[in-house]
Design a protein around this nucleic acid. Structure first.
Lengths: 328, 328
DNA sequence: CTGAAAGCGCTTACAG
DNA sequence: CTGAAAGCGCTTACAG
């Protein structure tokens, strides 16, 4: 269903009166040199015939596709769409396309959502999703460079790129403590393992000799954040501040607090996590821990292109951005 | 850089003691029938050798890649990330992968951002971006099925799928009129041509015998929406209501109104356009015109797969969702 | 029901 | 500087 009778390398070669090899040399700028006059003839033929190289054939012949795959839970989450954007930018800067795989979509569309992926000849894979052991095994068998990004549950087999979740969370909580809050809650996800963000929150409170506030575990979605915040708002002994594990949750939580008649930050101060653009346009604007998304994306792509990376954990520090939600 | 010494069809065939053609027949369930016993031998060999078919070779041989391309201005805009998600879902349901191209990224990464696209052998292309005439010419030469989505400036050459922008905008404005507003402004984009949303707003006001309110033209970004709203807020003869052309603009505008000390909807009522999830979690929740995104996405994919679609305009009606931003 | 073989459109050693 | 040719890993008419 591509072009009906598409122009091929051979057509160009014939028209220019050279071999198809020469056409390749011209188009790829190598590996052989071509005489200027010949070169011009080829270029003219290309233009005249409207020739477009077939990327598929090229990929088959070269044994690589110049394409990187990226697995993401849900691209509708602003954090992930910013991450995808950054990785895409990095990939293109290095001459690669990025094929984004929404694991959400796959999971609903097919029982074995990674199946199609398996036959794809990616140069590498950026994993922004937590996979089941079975899925991980499948991925490993792909035998291509892999980098985990945005995951704190670092797998032993792969290189992992992320922020210092623990320290970031601790700093966020400390900021609330420094502003005089004594009852500081936590809203986060329903992880099976301990979320380092929850851990960092605990650590900060413990260090300050403060009691652990209540923790609310929600689905990582707007609806989840809204419900958790509503629950918090109805608490008889309400906390005066809350550290929320993602901007998406925090934005929905803000709406819930408003709906419950709470003023931010007067009644409930909020510090969030991620530093997406959305956090700035929330009402009130969110104080949030910023992830250096582009730097992480660049790193991921560079490592992949360099070949299978060492299974280490590359950790970026976070920076806090002070805004009105915490009274700043 | 794919698997070092990957297992090929030939290896499987040899191991199973059949020809590579038979392996194909088994794996593709056709076009020939294979004896059950032989079939089982092949399947066993596949499992034992850990064979993964090479999608690139398959694509070259079949002349198609089962991949659809989608060009989007900026995936970080929630409306587009929801649209991409929907199209991805539709594509996978039909057995195709979706390669998303951020024209933003391409434009900054390469002068001719569509160049790489040209050699890709897509089965079809979903265009959610307005292209320059030169870019359009390039795309046409691709000679593959194309569908425009989310564009009101319908090109004559292509099928176009979208909502009834004009009617949607009119209904949005009428809602404000029905609630008694007399001074209704408009915040929209800086389009060279007349945005039908602006046109619909005008029409509603004219029909009601109301004077045209001021119109604020902004970049389609959060920053753009914020600035436009700030300008509106400072107006001496401030409007009491505003129709805003997208949720992204409206969310940023809400923040600006709050920052300027205006209450929504008491001082300024807002009706927005798009119906993204974000609109629901804004404060206050936005009354907005909902686009039937999934239906549009399904339609786009179905048409592409059926072959080059007729250059018609498929228009979906919009539905208003009433929420607090308009006092509902 | 199974096999030998041509072909998809490139790339790239190998000769000249 | 240029060409003839093998090869990438599949698919699929064509024979048997």
């Amino acid at each position: 269903m591509t072009a009906q009778k598409s122009v091929t390398r051979t057509d160009v070669a014939r028209y220019a009166g050279v071999s198809s090899a020469v056409v390749s040399y011209v188009l790829n700028d190598g590996p052989k040199r071509v005489a200027p006059a010949t070169r011009q003839r080829v270029l003219d033929a290309v233009a005249l015939l409207g020739y477009r190289p077939n990327a598929t054939a090229r990929a088959l012949s070269r044994g690589k596709v110049d394409m990187i795959g990226m697995i993401v839970p849900d691209i509708r989450n602003p954090y992930f769409s910013e991450l995808v954007y950054a990785v895409d930018l990095a990939a293109h800067a290095r001459g690669r396309s990025l094929l984004v795989i929404n694991s959400d979509v796959r999971r609903s569309a097919a029982p074995n959502h990674l199946k199609g992926l398996v036959s794809q000849q990616f140069d590498g894979l950026v994993l922004a999703d937590t996979l089941s052991p079975a899925e991980t095994a499948l991925i490993v068998r792909l035998n291509i460079p892999i980098v985990l990004i945005n995951q704190f549950r670092g797998a032993e087999e792969f290189m992992s790129i992320g922020v210092d979740y623990f320290d970031g969370a601790r700093e966020a909580t400390e900021h609330l403590i420094n502003r005089g809050h004594k009852k500081i809650a936590f809203i986060g996800g329903t992880n099976p393992a301990l979320d380092p963000r929850e851990h960092g929150w605990m650590e900060a409170l413990t260090e300050a000799g403060l009691p652990l506030g209540r923790r609310y575990r929600a689905e990582f979605s707007s609806a989840g954040g809204y419900e958790a915040a509503m629950e918090l708002a109805r608490e008889p002994d309400r906390p005066t501040a809350v550290f929320i594990a993602s901007d998406q949750l925090a934005i929905a939580a803000s709406a819930a607090f408003h709906a419950a008649g709470l003023r931010i930050p007067e009644d409930i101060a909020v510090v969030s996590f991620d530093g997406t653009t959305e956090s700035k346009y929330n009402w009130p604007p969110l104080t949030t821990m910023v992830q250096p998304v582009q730097a992480m994306a660049d790193e991921a792509i560079n490592r992949l292109i360099a070949g299978t990376p060492e299974p280490t954990f590359v950790e970026y520090p976070m920076k806090i951005v002070l805004r009105a939600s915490s009274g700043d």
